[in-house]
Nucleic acid binder design. Structure first.
Lengths: 342, 342
DNA sequence: CGTAGTCGTCGAACCGGTTCGACAATCTGG
DNA sequence: CCAGATTGTCGAACCGGTTCGACGACTACG
């Protein structure tokens, strides 16, 4: 495989001249530049990534640290990953996908060894043990998800509080008085998944303000348990006319449940979900939903990361916490309340 | 950040001694080894990946080249990725996830720059333009999926031909005489997705041998189109009593279709799918199916790759083409044919 | 016509590891 | 008691890039 030394010899110049001719960082005569470029072309020269990383202290690689939990919805995860890798690629970076149970060790390994220029962290927990490591790391870091302490890092997330309020407000305006909110399973919360109670608490608070009844329950993450739970909930709260879903598995399971019970949406039951457009398409869900935009979040995180990596000025800018505001995509699954046929 | 020079100074030895003490590649006195280890610990020393790669010509990174097509099922893809990254991690390798439309350029970039020790290719096309590049690359490569020409590469795939035969045989033994096979959309074939016609042709051939009628059609990849197609097929072939599905979207859409038509499975219609266990769980599909084991395939590819990377002996072994044999996981969705109520 | 300034190129040093050959000190066997 | 082997350590070279300072050649200007 050709090195820059080979290119230089072929072009009849020194190694440094070849380097400058290729990078353009110093003026080089047109004649020499042509010879070097031709030689590089002829020898199919590609710079050695390790050598370049060593010399420039830049790897052109970003780390993506994700954790794949058994009880998490794989399709949803995929969206984040694509958002990150696509954006990184467009900006000239490759992505190192690190999926390790021991996130702390993995993060330390990746940053200390200088394999990456920056790190995107996913599956952020309220009190995430990886954050101190990332703050102390020489590379900048960006989070997709909101932790308890955002200091020293750029943070991107959906505004889950506002999402909860938007859901409640929407059904309240239509005249609903009793709602059910089904959230992610409780162990997601225990693991530190703050977005679950961020939406939940905000929804409960807003319901209280508006004088609505809101039954907030934690769901399951799998079929058939989540289907059974839905049935149980509809039985338990026969007067509820609105269903809010912050739980992908529950959303995916709902169509068969309503079908089986002969419930019409929105005639008998108004439904609002919280998931991504892509998710809705995959499961062909007919519900109005709040777009969680995983690809957009991943893209934002990467763009900010690359800004900090590439510009010494940007590197010292104050850190940002940016929420994307929930957008209710209408699919016609809400209407003024009817009476549910039991 | 501490370098090995810092560690050496702290321990009062030369750089080379520090290196040997850490790697154990030469005998080092117990006393010195202790001092070096203590110094490394104290300084939180982690070797610089670029420098090590340059010196050893090993990066401890594997490339995973995937292409995410609009019309492909994201959840299925995720399974492959997890199989690869998990196995790689267990063997001490990180994974560079490269998702580029221009697979040829991406592959060349990654191999020529020596960013990776080996490459796993996914979404293999019958006449895949990336294969010549990979054969010529200095790193070994493994494919998940069967191309037209397997030479010079290790290949892993489900035995789709046998899968087709197993499906047909199974329903034949139960007494079925007329079947429908719904495959992936035709443009998957045009793109080079050979597994589609491998299963299809084998199924047709076996049906011919057994004197069965088999209606083989290409499906859609999305709702609601695929649902409509299913309805249309059931209308068009009212005498068909068995349905074979080599199309994830169709499998996911089938439950609501049968439900809507009041078709009982397997009373009125016997069904066999081809997808992964994980996929079945995600969509809670109640059908017997042939396990496509994406995680196992990914794992096999990585293990073989690492073998070749790490052992000079293994590097020169003949290349393998390994099929995992289709395993029919029974979920009770097949039975002797009844008469379909129209 | 001499000198200051620019342009283009080169040699050398450096990034941070690994590894080879040399060598001193210690141990072993005759 | 000495030759020879063994053990433990060091210095130097190397991997393949980038970058700094120096320098010769040429141009412009007073």
């Amino acid at each position: 495989m050709a090195t820059i030394g080979d290119v230089a010899r072929e072009a009849g110049v020194s190694r440094s001249t070849a380097s400058y001719a290729l990078s353009g960082k110093r003026p080089i005569s047109e004649e020499v530049r042509r010879r070097v470029l031709a030689a590089a072309e002829a020898l199919a020269y590609t710079p050695n990534a390790g050598a370049r990383a060593l010399a420039t202290a830049q790897t052109k690689v970003l780390g993506l640290l994700a954790q794949f939990h058994e009880d998490e919805f794989a399709p949803a995860m995929m969206q984040y990953i694509l958002g990150v890798t696509n954006t990184a690629r467009d900006l000239g970076y490759d992505t190192l996908l690190v999926n390790e149970a021991d996130g702390v060790r993995a993060l330390r390994r990746v940053t200390d060894s200088r394999m990456v220029d920056g790190v995107v962290l996913m599956n952020i927990a309220q009190d995430d043990a990886r954050l101190p490591i990332l703050r102390a790391a020489p590379q900048p870091g960006a989070l997709v998800g909101l932790p308890g302490d955002c200091s020293g890092l750029d943070v991107f997330d959906l505004d889950f509080e506002e999402a909860g309020r938007v859901m409640v407000d929407h059904l309240h305006r239509l005249g609903h008085r009793e709602l059910i909110l089904i959230s992610q399973p409780e162990h997601v919360v225990e693991r530190g998944g703050a977005y679950v109670w961020r939406l939940r608490d905000a929804a409960l608070e807003r319901a209280r303000q508006l004088g609505l009844t809101l039954h907030a329950v934690y769901g399951e993450s799998r079929q058939p348990a989540v289907g059974r739970l839905l049935v149980h909930l509809l039985d338990t709260y026969p007067a509820a006319t609105g269903l809010l879903i912050n739980n992908e598995a529950a959303a995916a399971a709902l169509p068969s449940v309503t079908y089986e019970r002969g419930l019409r949406v929105p005639g008998d039951l108004s439904v609002i979900g919280r998931y991504s457009e892509e998710f809705a398409a995959t499961f062909s869900l007919p519900y109005s939903f709040i777009e969680s935009a995983p690809d957009r979040l991943g893209a934002m995180a990467v763009r900010q990361l690359v800004r900090r990596v590439e510009s010494p000025v940007a590197r010292n800018e104050p850190f940002v916490v940016r929420f994307i505001s929930p957008e209710l995509v209408s699919r016609g699954s809400t209407a003024p309340p009817g009476t549910r046929s039991p």
